[in-house]
Design a protein around this nucleic acid. Structure first.
Lengths: 207, 207
DNA sequence: TCCGATACGTTGCGACTGCAACGCAAAAGG
DNA sequence: CCTTTTGCGTTGCAGTCGCAACGTATCGGA
């Protein structure tokens, strides 16, 4: 072989450029040439590593998933045995609270729209969320007989909540702090550790 | 004047075609020519009614908003004085439970992505959700001292929840029934009318 | 009856798209 | 040394895009 280049590394580099373009200018502006320009290479090289555009798009999606996974793995909060803390650590990774996650969030929204027409993209998205839903539901059950909601419903709700909060934050409809507070509140509900009601409620029950 | 055509009606007709294209083939396929073809007219006519593409896009967004509004106005559930029922009627309109709302949902997702690059689209989206958030929060407060969550947080959460559920249903990650059940469960929580916990909990409290 | 405004349709332009094809340089193996 | 494989750049092509310009037909008012 000649130059001997790490194929996967190159692809990741290009996928990075793609994600930047997608986040900053929208998925409609993701073209071979734009990605190449963003990466500082020629369009020909992009074609060399991805034979088709769709191949590149899907690979970029995998890169995001891997990145979230990686961030989760070296999160101190995500290790331990407090289910509530574990689930919180997982879900907060999906909220665009810093620059990195904002970029990923924009990409995620764009891909959700993209998935409407690309079944294989939809499938990959689906498998990711299904995995997380199962994880969350399991943790809630592990916390034992707690919240007022069925664990499956609570898990589905939390995941959808985070998705919606992310959309609202990205759209400027919601401050990041408010999103975090809303997530915390619903985590409390899901795990049954309800903080004191805002106004005098019926009977304050606590563990 | 010649032919004397209802300008607004024509624009609505074209916007309808746009929405169909957006829902079925994605926003990236929305072009003057495609919209024209879908509407069964020439591209020139589309240009006659919308001087620019962006003008058309924003008008189409208004059409969706008006349609939701209209559907809400002749919904028997949306009239009455039970706050919980009112909010439920409002939020369920945003869930893709039938063909019409599925189309609108796809459009909404596409536009959320689109808004990332178009500030005026983002502003219009923002104003719509802000109005609904205020309405929901008001209704929750009107229900009085009920759920474990602050009314503002509960309203924000419900709106985000519905948004997320819609995305998951559209992506095929979630069955429509499950989405509805999840919404119902969280409405119960928000309004403090908690249905019986799934497994033996502490103390079954009911009104 | 002429005028002009409105309602379209047609054409064309420059820019851009994804992609195939080809070309050349470099390096490992014979 | 020479062939072959791999990395990467260039060019070209058919198609699409938004949009401006122009053409025409139709009607109401003067």
């Amino acid at each position: 072989m000649p130059k001997q280049v790490d194929h996967h590394e190159r692809r990741t580099l290009l996928a990075d450029a793609l994600l930047r373009v997608a986040a900053n200018r929208g998925l409609m502006d993701v073209s071979l040439r734009h990605v190449a320009a963003e990466a500082g290479v020629t369009a020909g090289m992009v074609q060399h590593y991805f034979r088709t555009k769709d191949e590149m798009m899907i690979f970029a999606l995998d890169v995001v998933a891997a990145r979230v996974q990686a961030r989760l793995e070296d999160d101190p909060d995500a290790t331990g045995d407090d289910p509530r803390r574990l689930v919180g650590a997982l879900l907060v990774q999906l909220l665009p609270l810093d620059a990195d996650r904002e970029l990923e969030g924009r990409v995620a929204v764009a891909y959700h729209a993209y998935a409407a027409t690309r079944p294989d993209v939809a499938a990959r998205l689906r498998q990711d969320t299904e995995g997380m839903r199962a994880a969350v539901a399991g943790r809630i059950r592990a916390a034992g007989h707690a919240g007022p909601l069925d664990p499956e419903i609570a898990a589905t709700g939390l995941l959808a909540l985070v998705e919606g909060l992310a959309v609202h934050v990205l759209g400027g409809h919601l401050a990041p702090d408010a999103a975090r507070a809303t997530l915390d509140g619903h985590l409390d509900v899901a795990f049954g550790s309800v903080s004191t009601p805002p106004r005098a409620a019926r009977s304050g029950s606590r563990a």
